[in-house]
């Protein structure tokens, strides 16, 4: 099994620390080491493009150049980081003048972007690179009977990269089946969680979160699986705010897919960062 260069991103340092610990533990158990990039910087998230486009590309280019030094494929657990790095690499490869300009700036840190590595989302690494077959054989504690709503969110799928299906992806469902659980089919699996609107346009974002929770619960989800810190935080930490705003009483656990895979591989819950949630995931674990 191969190693990956790993770009955790700012949220995984604290707010989404359980995603970080579960990603490291679960990958290790699957035989893939995640090697954290040396001295990485913030990718600019979705908000940096509001200020300056060129600098936004430079921020990602620096991380890409650091990753190139390792010669490994680069993996990012956060969908915004992933999208920024993937499309920065694509733009720079298409536009040599832009690349030259940015490389001139990267010289200040002894770095150079050449665009010769593959950039993957952590979910793609699990569901496509390692693959459901291999994960299935590693499962020791299948999550029989657990109904999981796969939540893709936005930026892992969009913008479109090639000719892949952005409307009806299925790889998350396949991963969920591989760990013995039942994937729930619900129409909003690729709908936006509101992202940073939760800060800047709160009412709009809360209604988006409410719609997501509502459709998942309606289809009998025991837990919603996420692949992005922003989605997890919006769906989980703002669930109480949704309840207050809309007089609802949602109490759906939201887990990172790495935690769910980790549980199925028999990794102790503490090592998966379980216990730091607002909404207890114990009902999910108990049914297993």
């Amino acid at each position: 099994m191969k190693d990956y260069a790993y770009f955790p991103g700012c949220s995984l340092e604290k707010l989404a620390i359980s995603y970080h610990t579960s990603a490291l533990e679960t990958s290790k158990k699957l035989g893939a080491r995640l090697m954290e990039l040396d001295d990485w910087n913030c990718c600019g998230s979705t908000t940096y493009f509001h200020i300056d486009e060129l600098l936004a590309y430079t921020l990602s280019a620096r991380n890409l150049a650091i990753a190139e030094k390792t010669g490994l494929d680069l993996v990012a657990p956060c969908s915004a980081c992933y999208k920024n790095m993937y499309f920065t690499a694509a733009h720079l490869k298409k536009d040599p003048e832009l690349a030259e300009h940015i490389n001139y700036a990267l010289e200040e840190d002894d770095l150079h972007f050449s665009g010769n590595i593959r950039i993957r989302h952590l979910l793609e690494m699990y569901a496509q690179d390692i693959g459901p077959e291999e994960i299935k054989t590693a499962v020791t504690h299948p999550l029989d009977g657990v109904q999981i709503a796969p939540y893709y969110g936005c930026q892992i799928l969009r913008p479109r990269k090639d000719h892949e299906s952005v409307e009806q992806p299925h790889y998350f469902e396949d991963l969920i089946s591989a760990i013995g659980a039942t994937p729930i089919d619900y129409p909003l699996k690729t709908r936006c969680c509101g992202g940073s609107l939760i800060i800047s346009s709160r009412t709009a974002a809360l209604s988006m979160v409410r719609n997501l929770l509502h459709t998942a619960v309606e289809r009998q989800a025991d837990v919603i699986a996420t692949a992005c810190p922003m989605c997890q935080i919006n769906l989980e930490c703002y669930q109480q705010s949704v309840n207050q705003e809309f007089n609802t009483n949602f109490s759906v656990p939201i887990m990172y897919f790495t935690q769910l895979v980790g549980v199925a591989l028999g990794i102790p819950s503490k090592k998966l960062g379980i216990g730091k949630e607002f909404i207890s995931v114990m009902p999910v674990l108990a049914s297993e």
Binding site: K14, L54, Y104
Partner: peptide
Amino acid sequence: KGRLPLLPPRIKRLDNFKRMIRKII
């Protein structure tokens, strides 16, 4: 729950980083 940082993080090679930014804008 231990999910908020107490101190703002910063990168190690901050001087290089700032010089890089100044070359862009």
